[in-house]
Design a protein around this nucleic acid. Structure first.
Lengths: 163, 163
DNA sequence: TGTATTTATATGATATATCATAGAAATTTG
DNA sequence: CAAATTTCTATGATATATCATATAAATACA
């Protein structure tokens, strides 16, 4: 029963957290999405990274990163110049306005992260991380043909999956 | 330090879980997304619900539910007929094919959920749920003007947010 | 009852996620 | 070196998320 609902709790919590985070940014009158901020943050810290590597750091794929970068350029938060070392790339750099935005938003991010964790101690967070890592690791494996066959056979059984 | 990374762990884990789940469905050769399955599942169990209520059960907003329902109709997994009691509504019902799909997919869902939780006991899941609920509750509050002012003042400080 | 308000659904606009692929450039290899 | 392969970015197609709004119908209320 709890098993069944745990993924709903995960979805529910992460969605609420995202809304909470965005609400704090919006509330400060800043026109940027959390995802855009994440990419901007990586670019500031590691301007040499390509789109794939940026994505790896924030769990986005290359296509998403490419589109977010476009928006950052449109918003004049970064500028791109042809890279000297690799002509497929464009070097990226925060504009003045991009830097100012980071300076304003970063403490807001720290603050809402702190608020979201109120009432939890180091041990709780540690425990949470450990459990999430187990789930993450479990989800690394690919389904095999064999699994599918077994799955189908389980269809009529009294829910051995416990969910 | 752990604090800083915990939301990344959450995002990382939920994204991996979604891919894992979808991979299991795809692997069985079934043409449906997890989200479509979620909506279909609610409709089967509670065909009387409106789009807002469906959304509440699976943490989606009305617009997303409306669009998913459209796709379910296009895929001929449900049919809609004008509601007798409320002419704004359309009653929904699973087609034969929709029911067959549910019969095939449901055990797959149970299976990958079980796989994702391997190595975790009841206590772990319970603990996970409790911690997630704390975060969820913390994220229910709305940012206030006052918070914004305090946040801005924290800007130059040595990261009191711990993140 | 007639009007105002609320509710339910649909849809437009924009952002992000995912998969696939195109095109250009870099790298590897024979 | 030339051809094959790989890497990097851009982009098309589709699905979902979010916000806003339109429309129609139901409900509340004066």
């Amino acid at each position: 029963m709890l098993n069944e609902v745990i993924f709903y709790s995960l979805e529910k919590t992460i969605k609420r957290y995202r809304q909470f985070a965005q609400a704090h940014i919006d509330h400060a009158g800043i026109d940027i999405t959390i995802d855009q901020w994440l990419v901007l943050n990586v670019i500031r810290d590691s301007p040499e990274l390509g789109q794939v590597e940026i994505g790896e750091r924030i769990f986005k794929d290359q296509a998403s990163v490419a589109r977010i970068i476009e928006l950052l350029v449109k918003k004049k938060l970064i500028v791109r110049t042809p890279s000297a070392s690799d002509r497929r790339k464009l070097d990226m750099q925060l504009t003045e306005s991009g830097q100012r935005l980071m300076n304003v938003v970063t403490p807001i991010v720290h603050n809402y992260r702190r608020l979201a964790l109120e009432g939890l101690n180091e041990k709780d967070i540690d425990q949470l991380k450990i459990i999430l890592d187990v789930i993450f690791t479990n989800c690394l494996s690919t389904p095999h043909k064999h699994d599918t066959i077994r799955k189908t056979k389980l269809a009529g059984q009294p829910d051995a999956a416990g969910s």
